[in-house]
């Protein structure tokens, strides 16, 4: 589904990613771990197509197509979803209005009919239930006045409604207490499916107790320095990144 080869990327003049290789197949969950400043968030942004994150070398193919050439909105419509580490507030725009606009933009891109208000509401209610999302979060302005936990749950709610093929979860666990973490993880797990892949970026092993990955990669200095199965995460938790980073 996703093939990253020798990916180099910069922000401004600063090189951040220095040769990433990664292949993600449908149904797989990959965890990317690593210390602060290792390039984890940059990788998410590069894949999602954020302005200012420039690919300087290497390639990324997604479903056999060159991803780098596409704009952020086109990538989203092609099924790439990023759950933000810091979800953004949009004052005056209700969460449900925003999400319906997004759903319909994507449907239009795929040549499907747009959902009317009723059709959307039905879909949204179903998914909201899954994440135990309070009804009022649908009607409040996007992320405005949401608690940290509500923001993260809302990201997964958007994901559930948009039903992407490739989910990028950027530090989805940060700022969550244990109960909220479980709710979010349950939501994510319910979206695991044989034709959907996930890349879970996280600092801590804790999240991976709940979202169990197929593979774990350690990112350091803009490169993947070690890959393994879920036990690698446990090992890192016990020993820290020290040796790997030094290497």
């Amino acid at each position: 589904m996703l093939k990253i080869e020798n990916l180099h990327a910069s922000v401004g003049d600063k090189a951040i990613l220095k040769g990433i290789n990664l292949e993600v197949k449908p149904g797989e969950v990959h965890a990317i771990m690593g210390p602060n400043g290792s390039g984890k968030s940059t990788l998410s942004y590069v894949l999602a197509g954020r302005d200012g994150y420039e690919v300087t070398d290497g390639s990324v193919t997604y479903n056999g197509e060159d991803l780098i050439e596409k704009d952020a909105d086109e990538r989203a419509c092609d099924g790439i979803y990023l759950a933000f580490q810091y979800p953004v507030e949009i004052p005056g725009v209700s969460n449900s209005y925003f999400l319906r606009a997004a759903v319909n933009a994507q449907r239009k891109h795929r040549g499907e009919d747009e959902l009317d208000a009723m059709g959307f509401l039905k879909l949204a209610r179903e998914k909201a239930k899954l994440l135990e999302l309070p009804d009022n979060l649908m009607h409040r302005p996007v992320n405005v006045g949401f608690s940290g936990g509500e923001k993260k749950r809302n990201e997964i709610f958007h994901m559930a409604v948009l039903e992407p093929q490739l989910c990028l979860l950027d530090e989805t666990d940060s700022g969550l207490d244990i109960d909220a973490l479980k709710t979010v993880a349950n939501g994510v797990n319910s979206l695991r499916s044989p034709d959907r892949a996930m890349i879970v970026v996280t600092h801590y092993q804790r999240l991976l107790d709940y979202i169990v990955p197929d593979q774990v990669h350690v990112l350091s200095g803009g490169k993947i320095v070690k890959s393994g199965d879920k036990d690698l995460a446990k090992q890192l938790e016990a020993e820290g990144y020290g040796d790997l980073v030094a290497a």
Binding site: A48, G49, A72, A76, C77, I90, L99, A102, H158, L162
Partner: peptide, 11 residues
């Protein structure tokens, strides 16, 4: 940030 958030949702 706001703009990218919207684009990332497909708008």
């Amino acid at each position: 940030d706001q703009l990218f958030y919207c684009l990332q949702r497909g708008l």
